[in-house]
Amino acid sequence: MTPVLSVAEAHKRFGDTLALDGAELQLGAGEWLALLGPNGAGKTTLVRAVAGRVRLDSGRMTLLGRSLNDDSAHGNERDQLGVVPQDIALYPQLTAAENLRAWGRLHGVPSAAIGERVRWALDWTGLESRAKEPVKRFSGGMKRRLNIACGVLHRPEIVLLDEPTVGVDPQSRERIWEMLEDIRGDGASLLLTTHQLDEAQQVCDRIVIIDHGRVIAAGTFEELLRQTIGAERRITVSLDAQPPREFAGERWQIADDETLECRVADIAVELPSLLSELSAAGARVADLHVDAPTLQAVFIHLTGRELRE
C-alpha cells in the first residue's frame, strides 16, 4: 500500500496532559480509514495535527509524499486535504450557495470554476432547491451535508471527517454515507472519526483504535477479530423445555432454564451437527440466534470501555 498520508511517532503534550504518545497511522490511496477511540484518547488531536491546527512536539507527518513537519508548511502543502469538522462550521446568515462559494474560494477554487463546483455540490447534497435559503433555516441533516460539501468542494485527494454523521437522523445518515461513497468513487481517501461502530465496521477498509495517545490496534475488521476476540460466532438456542443435563459441558453452556449457548468457528460446517445433536437428545428447538462478533466487542476487549465512555 502506498500511503497518501502517514503519521509516525507523533507526540503532543498540553500541559500535564499527554495527548499523543507515539501515535501513528497510514492512509492508503483510495482507502477509508476509521479512527476510533474513547473520548480523550487523542484522535481529535491527531486529526487536528494533520490539518495543521496542532503542532506536534515530535513525530513525522507526510501528505502525498511531502513533509508536513515544517512550521511553514501551511497552505499549499495541504491543498489536497479536505477538512470536515464536527462542528457545523458554516455562516448561518449566508445561503447554501454563498457558503459553498465562500469556502470554495477560501480553499483555492479558481473563480472560473467556482460556479460549476457550487452547482455540483448543491446537486451532490440534494440542496438545489434550497440553494438561496439562509443556512440558519436548514435542518440538522441538511447543515451536516452542506458542512461536508464545503470541505470537499476543491476536490481534495484526502478528506478528514470528524464525526460526519453525529446528531443526524437515520435517513440523513444514510444520505451522507451515499455522498461519501460518491467521492470514494472519484478516488478520494478518507480518514474519519466516528462513534458509530457499526458504520465504521461496514464502510471502512481499515480501522485504527487509539487510546491514551497510542494506537493499540490497527487493521481490517477481520484482522482485529483475529488479534482480539477471534472470529467465533455465538449460537443461542431456545428450547421448548428444560434442556437435558448431559448438554452442559464444554460445547454447550446452559444460559438459563430453556436456553443453551455455544461458540463455533465455522458455522456452515458445525451448525447442522449441533442441531442433529439436539434432535437426537429429544430437545425441540423453539428459536435460534447466530451472533457475529462485532467491532463493539473488539473495542471493549481492547479498551475495557464502551466507546461513549
Binding site: G52, R53, G75, V83, P85, D87, I88, W103, G108
Partner: peptide
C-alpha cells in the same frame, strides 16, 4: 465558538 474560525485557519487563510 462556532468553529468557522478553526475551519478558516485550516484553509488557505493565514
Amino acid at each position: 465558538e462556532s468553529g468557522t474560525l478553526e475551519r478558516l485557519l485550516s484553509s488557505r487563510v493565514g
